[in-house]
Design a protein around this nucleic acid. Structure first.
Lengths: 155, 155
DNA sequence: CCATGCAGTTAGACACATCTAACTTTTTCC
DNA sequence: GGAAAAAGTTAGATGTGTCTAACTGCATGG
């Protein structure tokens, strides 16, 4: 699982955007990607050339964009990191959804597998132990509920 | 505190390195910075020009490097983010020190204030509630100890 | 069926960050 | 004090990623 990440943050963003757009509308066009990432259309063309060169995307000029198998794997990985971070921020740290997503968007390119896996496990644990567990109380901070029961959130 | 971050990850690294080196040896020279960041000496010269231009560093050619007031503020901010992340990874997630530091090094440029502050609070809380609290058990995962007592880790 | 307009691409500029190689300055020390 | 070594800088190349402006392709509807 995993494997080293060598893709730039920028290309990861493009890959993720393409994946999300395809999920959403079945087909991804350069224009959608440009809007999704808020970049110029020519930046998309440029990025696509890089992704095609790396064998992550299939794209003939003026045609729609498809992910290769490898490209989809990587995109799923990026999205996974994004979602793990977002969920951790909202569920464990009680950060509001907007800020969580915004922060995750940047951090998803930097988080390593070790930390990511621990975040998953920790969030899972907290979820299972709620409402008996650690809670964020506005104006007070994190507090613990009494009588926490059995744990074991896997490994 | 805080204020928007507009400095590139690269320049943040240089600023942080300079700060750490000064802490450590009282004076920072380009060579130290180059070794610290594992870059070519000319890359340091180049970065210094950027930092000087931004008023974050005082540096006359062939002389040692000093941080301006503003530069030191920013450096402290970067280092703080670094340390908060590192401590969270080790203390809360039980990630080993090496991996924690390595990951923090990259994430420190992406984490936002909201999340950072929650990480501080959460780590503080966990620390205060230990050993009665959440623990990582190798081969099992996170577990909760029974009878968690009073909380309140501030806000 | 072709004119218009939008989508997409290409070309060229710019900014950033890095490197190597060559040059300059400073330090060291005989 | 000067030669050799070390430290620092400059110059120039490379790679990435962004933009605007101009051009190309295409799809549509008049």
């Amino acid at each position: 699982m995993g494997g080293k990440r060598q893709l730039s943050a920028s290309l990861e963003d493009y890959l993720e955007a393409i994946y999300v757009i395809i999920q959403d509308k079945d087909v991804a066009r350069p224009k959608d990607v440009a809007q999704h990432l808020d970049v110029a259309a020519s930046s998309v063309t440029n990025a696509l050339q890089g992704l095609v060169k790396r064998g992550l995307v299939n794209h003939a000029p003026y045609d729609s964009i498809a992910l290769t198998e490898r490209g989809e794997e990587l995109a799923v990985g990026v999205l996974h990191r994004h979602q793990v971070l977002t969920r951790f921020f909202t569920d464990v740290l009680s950060v509001d959804a907007d800020a969580a997503a915004r922060c995750a968007c940047k951090m998803e390119h930097a988080v390593c597998d070790v930390v990511l896996n621990r975040l998953v496990d920790y969030a899972k644990f907290v979820k299972h132990s709620r409402p008996a567990g650690v809670r964020w109380v506005e104006g007070t901070g994190f507090v613990a509920d009494e009588h926490l029961s059995e744990g074991g959130a896997n490994a």
